[in-house]
Simulated assay, not measured.
Amino acid sequence: MTPVDLSRTVLHAVRRAVDEDALRAPVPARVRIERTRPGGSGDYACAVALQLAGPAALPALEVARILRDRVAAEPGIGRVDITGPGFLSFTLDAGADTAARHELVREVRERGPRYGHGDALRAEVLQFRHAREVRAAVSAHAVRALVVSQGARVRVSCETASDPDWERLGVGVDAHGVPPTPLTAIRPVPAGADAGELLERLGPDATRWGLLRPAGHDRAPLGDDLLVQGEANALFLVRYAHSRARSLTRGAALLGFDGAYEADSDARHPDAHALLDLLADHPGVLLAAARHRAPDRLARHLEAVARAFFAFHDSCPPLPIGDEKPSAAHRSRLALAEAAGTVLAGGLSLLGISAPEHL
């Protein structure tokens, strides 16, 4: 069971309690699930009981007891405890958790860069409009890719003639002018520079990342630090993580083995768990980024995946070290590392940024 699955399970328990009149409170739009902090109990925790206590006019501990009884019976849940003033602490069923991890890695590897694509927006026909400004054009292009990944149909128009340099950024426009039909305007804070200048100084990939990584209402930092090959540069970190994942595959082939998620020796390792959680979150991140017209959400998620990948890579090496022989644990670690590389490649593609095999 992933954090997303657990969030849905708790939300379902809240709805049941409300429907059964055991709880009189509005059902929240979502329930936030977090990894249990060091020293805490269980695998995950949430504060939904504290959130609902006021509207329900009940003590948080009473709300927690109402929800605990309904969550504990759900498949995949081993135990639910109440801690502190009313936190729910969840211990997952070991067998179900193992099956979920296997299924997650299998799905990523099977679907490839399209992992996380869906049809939640299949009924939507959207029209976006943007000004003749490079950040607006790049943002509209990325938003288009995101909503299409969730099944929507989209048409993008620019208020006036396109800048010819946009083609070098991979940006296309379907129409010019302002049609009479309802449109959604894509209006981030302007970049303060034109496409030609940015391309000459940064190149297409760094330009797109610099324009898309900040939220639309924030100014886009477009300094030369976007070209620095170091951990402080998030774009380099994400692309290097992808490149490293691909190099692991090549290294394993030279040693005569490939990835197969079959060993659970690292299953409870916090770095493996953190990476698995982020991969499980990827479909939800894509859908949220599409619905909110926010490619920055995807960029931040890719950065988190890259950092989790390197933490896992360092603590659970996918390739044998020294005289070690390849083992089931190495095959499992390699499969997880390859899945992370796949998610990074797919996410970068949606942002219109290349994911080179070598850096």
Score class of each variant (00 low, 15 high):
residue 171 V to E: 11
residue 153 R to K: 08
residue 176 H to C: 11
residue 156 V to A: 06
residue 180 P to A: 07
residue 194 D to H: 14
residue 172 G to C: 11
residue 175 A to F: 12
residue 153 R to Y: 03
residue 202 L to A: 03
residue 145 A to M: 02
residue 151 G to M: 00
residue 192 G to S: 13
residue 178 V to F: 09
residue 180 P to W: 09
residue 149 S to L: 00
residue 195 A to R: 05
residue 184 T to E: 15
residue 146 L to R: 02
residue 201 R to L: 04
residue 182 P to E: 05
residue 154 V to K: 02
residue 175 A to Q: 15
residue 187 R to C: 08
residue 152 A to Q: 09
residue 149 S to N: 11
residue 203 G to R: 13
residue 169 L to A: 13
residue 147 V to D: 05
residue 174 D to A: 12
residue 172 G to H: 15
residue 201 R to W: 09
residue 155 R to P: 02
residue 207 T to C: 01
residue 182 P to C: 04
residue 169 L to Y: 11
residue 157 S to E: 15
residue 168 R to E: 15
residue 192 G to T: 07
residue 204 P to A: 14
residue 183 L to K: 10
residue 186 I to P: 04
residue 182 P to K: 06
residue 205 D to F: 05
residue 149 S to H: 09
residue 192 G to Q: 06
residue 149 S to I: 06
residue 204 P to R: 08
residue 181 T to N: 13
residue 191 A to L: 03
residue 188 P to Y: 01
residue 146 L to C: 04
residue 201 R to D: 14
residue 207 T to H: 05
residue 151 G to V: 02
residue 206 A to M: 14
residue 164 P to V: 03
residue 185 A to M: 14
residue 166 W to Y: 02
residue 168 R to I: 07
residue 196 G to P: 06
residue 200 E to L: 15
residue 188 P to E: 05
residue 187 R to Y: 12
residue 188 P to N: 03
residue 189 V to E: 08
residue 210 G to V: 01
residue 200 E to A: 15
residue 152 A to W: 14
residue 174 D to R: 09
residue 199 L to M: 12
residue 203 G to P: 13
residue 190 P to K: 09
residue 168 R to F: 11
residue 193 A to F: 10
residue 168 R to S: 04
residue 171 V to M: 09
residue 146 L to Q: 00
residue 209 W to Y: 10
residue 174 D to N: 15
residue 174 D to H: 12
residue 187 R to S: 12
residue 194 D to E: 13
residue 208 R to C: 00
residue 180 P to S: 08
residue 208 R to T: 01
residue 155 R to A: 11
residue 209 W to T: 04
residue 189 V to I: 02
residue 204 P to V: 13
residue 192 G to A: 10
residue 155 R to S: 14
residue 201 R to M: 04
residue 182 P to Y: 10
residue 146 L to A: 02
residue 209 W to H: 11
residue 204 P to W: 05
residue 185 A to H: 15
residue 148 V to T: 08
residue 205 D to C: 12
residue 207 T to L: 02
residue 186 I to E: 12
residue 195 A to T: 07
residue 191 A to N: 03
residue 201 R to Y: 09
residue 188 P to M: 01
residue 183 L to D: 09
residue 174 D to L: 11
residue 209 W to K: 00
residue 189 V to M: 06
residue 161 A to V: 06
residue 180 P to E: 10
residue 184 T to F: 08
residue 151 G to T: 01
residue 207 T to R: 01
residue 208 R to K: 10
residue 198 L to F: 12
residue 175 A to N: 12
residue 145 A to C: 01
residue 169 L to E: 01
residue 193 A to H: 15
residue 195 A to I: 05
residue 152 A to I: 05
residue 159 E to T: 03
residue 167 E to C: 04
residue 156 V to P: 02
residue 166 W to P: 08
residue 184 T to N: 14
residue 167 E to N: 05
residue 150 Q to M: 03
residue 158 C to W: 06
residue 150 Q to C: 08
residue 200 E to Y: 14
residue 147 V to A: 01
residue 190 P to Q: 02
residue 188 P to G: 04
residue 162 S to N: 03
residue 176 H to G: 03
residue 186 I to G: 09
residue 182 P to A: 02
residue 182 P to R: 10
residue 206 A to K: 05
residue 151 G to N: 00
residue 178 V to E: 15
residue 200 E to V: 14
residue 156 V to F: 06
